[in-house]
Computed example of a mutant assay.
Amino acid sequence: MPIISAEFAAETDALLSWLRDAALPFWAEMAIDSKGGFFEDLALDGTPNTDAVRRVRVQARQIFVYANAHKAGWYDSTAILDRLYDFLMTYGYRPDGAAGFVHRIGPDYTVTDAKRDLYDHAFYLLACASLMGCDGATKHDEAAALTDTLLDFIDVEMGACTGWTEGVPAVLPRRQNPHMHLFETSMALYDVTGESRFMDRAARIYRLFTDHFFDADNHIIREFFDNDWTYADGALGQTAEPGHACEWVWLLGQYEARSGVDTRCYADALYARAFENGGVFLNDEEDVNDAVRRDTKRLWVQTEVIRAHLAQMEYGNKDAQDKAVAAMAAFRESYLNPNGTWNDQFDGAGGMIATTIPTSTFYHIYGMITEAVRIKSLGP
């Protein structure tokens, strides 16, 4: 670890102050309905879009935010967590009698999409890990039992020879993204239980990363695949998302810290490729040859940019701290609003083009800020 600069400390403190004093109170007070669930998104003036269809996983991501904020002592989330868990289980879990969580519910809380999605279920498991690790939550036992039930469901109903299918029903293309979040979740479950079975699961996903997701020729993450993990046909198979490459840089560091496996060569290669053209923010989508497909810039991508810099700081990269400071400062100025909301997307010319404030984005913001706080605490 390098010596923590005054500039890095100041940017971290500013982000934490925004999170603790503005964002956590705002969303708890302004974005929860009468039944205890978060709205899918807000209008740009900060009022809830009450008619929006909700992705059920958004509730799980908010459990992650508020459970960990409570654990950190940044917000008293006790009442929110109880009501949010009850909302999730009442309206999302088996409302049609089938196993697992449905994908979407309407404004009247009825099911609008009953598919069972692997990506979604990674976040239900992350919510369980968050509740199990939070002394302020009363749902520890329920979350532990649900964890085993969901893992059995995923392994039986979505299991494949290597990795897992996209969900129930199984569809193509297969994606690396759900597996990446199962990787994250497996480590979170290991952290709260100490059980080796969760690191064994993480190791399975790490092998998928080394064997299929990481493109050793181009130093990118491949996104879409056929059943046998060959790249999907056409333009889809040539997709590269810089945000996911940065997310993997951070996750590889987390895996190395827990497993002792040396992941540095992969993390360094992804990091160098992602920032080879300079710039503070990264595009939403490119291709394997660096051609820009979408020069728009979602907020979540930039949180992963910052976490990649933070991971490289911990690896000892001497330039990463200055890059992190620049990105954190630009992020605060461009994306965060003083009232605790955010600007979700900008166009290539720097104009804000988001039409809503997505609730789901809080997961990315919270993860980035807490990682900055952790890194600050490590350095002299």
Rank of each mutant, 00 (worst) to 15 (best):
M1V: 08
M1Q: 04
I3R: 10
I3C: 02
E7A: 15
T12V: 15
L15H: 11
S17C: 13
D21H: 04
D21Y: 00
A22I: 00
W27G: 00
E29Q: 14
M30T: 02
M30S: 08
D33W: 03
F38Q: 01
D41K: 13
A43M: 00
G46T: 14
A52C: 06
R54T: 08
V56P: 00
Q59A: 09
Y66N: 03
K71N: 10
Y75L: 07
T78R: 15
R83A: 11
R83C: 01
L84Q: 08
L84K: 06
F87P: 12
L88K: 08
M89A: 14
T90W: 14
G92A: 13
Y93H: 15
G97C: 02
G100R: 04
Y109S: 00
Y109E: 05
D113P: 02
A114P: 07
L118G: 08
Y119E: 14
Y119D: 15
A122K: 07
L126V: 00
A127L: 03
S130F: 09
D135V: 07
G136Y: 07
A137E: 04
T138P: 12
K139N: 12
D141W: 03
A143R: 05
A144Q: 13
A145D: 14
A145E: 13
L146C: 08
L146E: 05
E157T: 00
M158Q: 03
G163F: 01
T165S: 11
V168P: 01
L172Q: 13
P173N: 05
Q176T: 08
M187K: 06
M187F: 02
A188D: 10
L189V: 06
V192K: 07
E195V: 00
E195C: 01
S196Q: 12
R204W: 05
H212V: 10
H212N: 12
A216R: 10
H219I: 00
I221G: 02
F225D: 06
T230H: 14
Y231D: 13
A240E: 11
P242N: 10
H244S: 09
H244W: 10
V249M: 02
G253M: 13
Q254E: 15
T263N: 06
T263L: 04
A267N: 06
L270C: 04
L270D: 03
Y271L: 03
Y271N: 04
F275V: 03
F281D: 02
N283M: 06
N283Y: 13
D284K: 05
E285Y: 01
D287A: 09
V288I: 15
K297A: 11
L299D: 11
L299E: 08
Q302A: 01
V305M: 05
R307F: 00
A311P: 06
A311S: 15
Q312W: 01
A320R: 12
K323Q: 11
F331V: 03
Y335C: 04
Y335A: 02
L336Y: 04
W342S: 15
W342L: 15
N343G: 12
N343D: 15
G350Y: 09
T356C: 10
I357S: 10
T359A: 14
T361Q: 03
H364L: 09
E371S: 12
A372I: 08
L378Q: 07
